[in-house]
Simulated scan of single mutants.
Amino acid sequence: MANPPGSKCPTHEQRKPRRSAASKGYGREHEQRFRAGVLDRDRVCVVCRTEPATQADHWPLSKRELQARGLDEHDPRRGRGLCASCHSKETARHQPGGWNAGPRY
Rank of each mutant, 00 (worst) to 15 (best):
D72M: 13
L61C: 12
S88V: 15
G81D: 05
V38C: 02
H30P: 03
A56M: 02
P103S: 09
D72T: 09
R43W: 02
R64W: 06
G25E: 05
T91D: 06
E73L: 09
C83S: 02
A68N: 14
R80D: 01
V47I: 15
A2K: 15
S62K: 06
P4L: 15
A36E: 10
A92K: 05
P5C: 12
L39R: 10
V46M: 11
P10I: 14
V46P: 05
R69P: 05
R69L: 13
P5T: 12
E29C: 07
A84N: 06
R93W: 04
G98D: 00
L39P: 07
Y26Q: 04
R19C: 05
P10M: 11
L61E: 12
G70W: 12
H58F: 08
R64D: 06
A56D: 00
R41S: 06
G79M: 03
S62W: 13
K8Y: 11
A101L: 09
R19F: 04
K24P: 03
P4I: 14
G102M: 03
V47F: 11
H30C: 04
R104C: 01
V44A: 06
K63W: 01
P17Y: 09
A21W: 02
C86N: 01
E13I: 07
D75T: 02
E51P: 07
A92C: 04
Q67S: 07
L61W: 14
Q95I: 00
S7A: 12
G27V: 00
K63L: 03
C83H: 01
P103H: 12
T91V: 08
E65K: 11
S7E: 15
G70T: 14
Q32L: 06
P10H: 12
G70P: 13
V46H: 02
S85L: 09
S85P: 04
W59H: 12
P76S: 02
A2H: 13
W99E: 03
L82A: 03
L82F: 01
C48D: 08
C9Q: 15
R19G: 05
S7N: 13
R15L: 15
A21I: 08
A68H: 14
N3T: 10
G25Y: 06
E73Q: 11
P5I: 10
H74C: 00
Q32H: 06
A36H: 11
A22L: 10
R41I: 07
S62H: 11
R43Q: 10
K8A: 05
L39S: 04
G102V: 04
K63Y: 00
S62I: 07
D57H: 15
A56Q: 00
A92I: 05
H74Q: 01
K89G: 03
P4M: 14
A101I: 08
R41W: 05
G79F: 03
S88H: 14
A92P: 04
M1F: 07
E65M: 10
L61A: 12
L61N: 09
K16V: 11
Q55R: 13
R49D: 15
H30D: 02
P4V: 14
E90R: 13
P103I: 11
Y26W: 02
R64Q: 10
P96Q: 07
K16M: 14
R69N: 08
G37N: 07
A22D: 12
R77K: 10
A101G: 13
P60W: 12
R19T: 09
R18N: 11
A56E: 00
A92W: 03
